[in-house]
Amino acid sequence: MALEYILIVFLIISVIISFGIGANDETMAPLYGSRILKMKQILILAAIFAIAGAVLLGEGVAKSVGDKILLLDYESSGINQNAVVMTILISTAIVLILSSAFGLPISSTHATIGGIIGLGLLLGNGGGVNWSTILEMSIWWLASPIVGFTVTYGVVKLLNKHKLKTLKGFKAFEKSENRYSYIILIIICITAFSRAGNDSSNSVGIVVGVGGDIDIIWLLIITGLGLAIGIIVLGRIVIKNLSQMTDLRPSTAFAVQVPTAAVMLIGTFQSIPLSGSHLLVASLVGLSKANNTPMRKGLGKIIAIWLLTFPIAALLSIVLYFPIDLLL
């Protein structure tokens, strides 16, 4: 197949991957839950930051997929590395799109690792997966929700004790909440911007890997558009679903978002693979417990999909590998 055609195929797949990642982007959920902005405004903002983040930050963060987990000797075994990478990314995208269609936020890292495990088992004759790394990571996967819950619970309790008690009327309450709404808006925009930069690397990487004469700016714009369309088409369901899990207002959205962002930042600096989705959901549960407000239906489904992410992604990658290998 001519390089141009290969590039076009990879570009289409790259857009599908971006779409899947955008579809499962729950960053804006606190903004909708606390009704700081309407859904239409949120989607416009999310689309702008997705494109801006992809274009301005996407180039510098190209990632390798599954280096430490997949133990395959490509040269001696004749396994097509491009097909492996493509299969992992496509299975990840499918899992993300499917879960987004049901409004369920999942960890894209989990979906990717599920795909890697599937291929490792299929192609490595039992020895293709670095289980010790998986075990090490799984400790952090378990820790993510616990950290999110604990930090938000603590922040909400502190806020209730020191801040809310000092508010002596509707007017003071309104003034305070308005202040929080500006802060949370800025924080979420920054998070959306950096997340778009980070997420776009997965889909940009596969096209760059093909080689050839590629205009990287256009590639980043297309990736950003994929993310934005994902958010607009399916991401709205995830945002709506997540934001309705418990009562949110600007100050509690702040209590949910700030610890989530801070813990994620620490995790990034320490190279700890924490999941933003898990942190956010756990933070919402922490908020609900700290405020004694009920959790609405949906938490059970989210936990179920978290547990099912690995096997579904693994199965998908096993099923998709051979047709993709044939194509490439």
Binding site: S34, R35, I36, F170, F173, E174, E177, S181, D247, R249
Partner: peptide, 12 residues
């Protein structure tokens, strides 16, 4: 302009 504090709007 029902915005950030719908519960306060509803309560009022």
């Amino acid at each position: 302009d029902k915005r950030a504090l719908p519960f306060l709007v509803e309560d009022r």
